[in-house]
C-alpha cells in the first residue's frame, strides 16, 4: 500500500515539487529581500520622490501648496543669490576635492613607506575624522579669531605683521580659505587610510618587478601602483565630491550670519537649509536640493565614464 501510488497523484506531486522549486528560485529570494527593500525604499526612495514632487509645488509655510510646474526652477535660474551659491559651491568642491586627494595620497604614501613603524602615526592621522564637525568648526574659528587666535599670533610672530588683528571672517574669500582648511583637515584622514589600504593591496610581485627594472619611486607610484587603484580612486573622488557639495556644518558654525558676511559664503547646502527652515519656502528648498542631486549624479556619471574609458 505504501509502495504503490496512483499515476495522477504522482503527476500532481511532481508538479507541486516543480512549483515549489520554481517558488524557491524566484519568489523566495524576493521574499527574503523584501524587509530590506521596504526599509531602503522607505528611507531613500520615498524622501527623494517626495522632494522632487515638492519642488513642483509652491511649498510655502507648512503646506505643499498648489502645483506650479517648473516655476521654482525658472525662478532659481533668475535668482542671483542661487547662481552665486552654485558657482561658489563648484569652486569650493573642485579645490577641496583636488587638495584632499593630493594630500590624502601623500599621507598614504608616507604611512605605506613607514610600514609597521607608522602605526601610531596612522592612529593620529585618523583623529580629525573622528572629531565631530561642529566641535572642530568651533575650534577652527577660535584658531582664526582676529584678536585671540593662534593663527594670527603665529603669523605675526613670523614677521607677517599684516595679520596682526586680521579679521578672517570679514570677507567671503578669507572665510572660504579658513573653511577649506578645516574641511581638508577633516576629510584627508579617511582618504589617506582608504588609499593606504589600497596601496597595501598592490601585488608585491608587480612592484618588485618594476623595482628590478629600475623604475624610480615616483614613476612606480604613478605608472604602476596608482593605476591599479583606479576603482578605489573613482569611489573616493565621488565620495569627496558629494561631501564637498554637502558641506554645511563648517559654514553654519564659522560664519556670521550663516552664509555671511553679506551672503559671501552661501553655498547650496546652506541655501537649501535657509529656504527650508528659516524662510519656510519648502518648494524652493526642494528645487535647490533636486538640482544639487542632479549635479552630483552627473558628476558621478562623468567619473565612472572616465574610469571606464581609462580601463578599456
Amino acid at each position: 500500500m505504501t509502495g504503490e501510488t496512483l499515476p495522477a497523484a504522482r503527476g500532481r506531486s511532481a508538479a507541486a515539487r516543480r512549483w515549489g522549486r520554481h517558488l524557491d528560485s524566484t519568489a523566495l529570494p524576493w521574499l527574503l529581500l523584501l524587509p530590506a527593500l521596504v526599509v531602503i525604499l522607505g528611507l531613500v526612495a520615498y524622501p527623494i520622490i517626495e522632494t522632487i514632487w515638492l519642488s513642483f509645488h509652491a511649498g510655502t509655510d507648512l503646506s505643499t501648496g498648489p502645483f506650479v510646474g517648473l516655476s521654482q526652477y525658472r525662478s532659481l535660474a533668475d535668482d542671483p543669490d542661487f547662481r552665486a551659491a552654485l558657482v561658489r559651491t563648484i569652486y569650493f568642491s573642485v579645490f577641496n576635492v583636488v587638495a584632499t586627494m593630493v594630500i590624502g595620497l601623500l599621507v598614504a604614501l608616507v604611512l605605506d613607506a613607514l610600514r609597521s613603524r607608522g602605526r601610531l602615526l596612522g592612529v593620529i592621522v585618523l583623529l580629525p575624522w573622528a572629531m565631530p564637525r561642529v566641535a572642530s568648526g568651533i575650534v577652527w574659528k577660535w584658531m582664526f579669531d582676529a584678536q585671540y587666535g593662534t593663527v594670527n599670533w603665529a603669523l605675526n610672530s613670523a614677521g607677517l605683521h599684516q595679520f596682526n588683528g586680521y579679521a578672517w571672517f570679514n570677507s567671503g574669500f578669507s572665510s572660504l580659505v579658513v573653511i577649506s582648511a578645516a574641511w581638508i583637515w577633516q576629510s584627508v584622514p579617511f582618504i589617506a587610510i582608504a588609499l593606504l589600504a589600497g596601496l597595501r593591496s598592490n601585488p608585491h610581485e608587480i612592484i618588485e618587478a618594476a623595482q628590478v627594472d629600475g623604475a624610480p619611486y615616483w614613476r612606480l607610484v604613478f605608472r604602476v601602483r596608482l593605476p591599479m587603484l583606479r576603482p578605489l580612486l573613482v569611489v573616493l573622488l565621488v565620495m569627496s565630491t558629494i561631501w564637498a557639495f554637502q558641506a554645511f556644518d563648517y559654514f553654519f558654525v564659522m560664519t556670521v550670519p550663516p552664509g555671511g558676511p553679506d551672503h559671501s559664503t552661501e553655498v547650496l547646502s546652506l541655501l537649501t537649509w535657509l529656504n527650508a527652515f528659516s524662510l519656510l519656502q519648502q518648494g524652493k528648498a526642494a528645487a535647490i536640493a533636486v538640482l544639487t542631486f542632479v549635479i552630483l549624479a552627473v558628476a558621478t556619471l562623468m567619473y565612472v565614464r572616465s574610469f571606464r574609458e581609462a580601463t578599456e
Binding site: 582676529a146 584678536q147 588683528g165 579679521a167 556670521v256
Partner: peptide, 9 residues
Amino acid sequence: SPSASANWQ
C-alpha cells in the same frame, strides 16, 4: 571697534 566686530555677537 576692531574690524572683526562686523561679525561679533
